[in-house]
Amino acid sequence: MTPSDEPSRARTAQRVLARREARIGLLFVLPAFIVFLAFRFGPAIASMALAFTDYTIGATPNWLGLENFRRMLDDPVFWSALKVTVMFTVMTVPVSLAMSVGMALLVRRAFRGVGLFRSIFFLPVVTSLVLAATVFTWIFSSNGPWSSLMGRLGLPEETWLGNPNLVLPALVVVAVWSRFGYGMLILLARLQDVPRELEEAALTDGANAWQRFRYIVFPQLRPALFFLAVIETTASFQVFDLVYVMTGGGPARASYTLVYELYEQGFRYFNLGYASAIGVALFVMTLVVALIQRWVIGRDR
């Protein structure tokens, strides 16, 4: 036995222990994993298979190959829905992120009543979106508070939900309202980890608020922001409840999104094969966007 054997044996013992722990860990995860496999992956894979068929309720599916995708490329409704979805995402994600950062910075420090403010700002996240959308439908109606506010600002006093150019901004307002609290919470947790001394040192060096945020706080927030950007983008690409409750895709398809088309094709017309194809397209697009975001925001890590 040479002295060098000792640490190597310890390493082996450690590895055995680690493997054992991993196995026990796996055992704990297994039930959840199986449920996930059965109710998430299974249907997802099945729907990918359905995308290549003409499946409808109660009939045997026929294999169509790429026909559904070809139809999608020729379908003006699909392209208009894609455009609406992208526009909605492009408006929602930055506004929601900016709002989350802003609110997180505001409620970051301990002051009297901060807990109350944090709870209030988080409240929309745990509010049923369908319920909120119903209330917002009234808020945006011709006689609602939003229209009178616009009137006071000297803008036309009309319902935003009835104007093809304003319907998406209206939905963005509701989406941001319902989601910024979640982002705020994530960023708040991250902000607690930023050493106070760093900022105090910067303050002593004469850095102003913006410089302290830009050079000290922001770099620390980057991973959390990347996470939020991905989550927000995915959520925006999948926007459905708001459209379903508030506009039904109108006026004249100005708020007709991809998931709404998927729903209509699947559950109103029972074209489940075509609906699955739209789902696959949506999945691929979300994946690509997430990879791009990873490359841009997550580059340093």
């Binding site: 119903t134 109606s141 009835g162």
Partner: peptide
């Protein structure tokens, strides 16, 4: 009523 052309408000409103 203009709102009815594009949205479905709660009926009592």
């Amino acid at each position: 009523e203009r709102d009815l052309l594009t949205t479905i408000p709660a009926f009592e409103q």
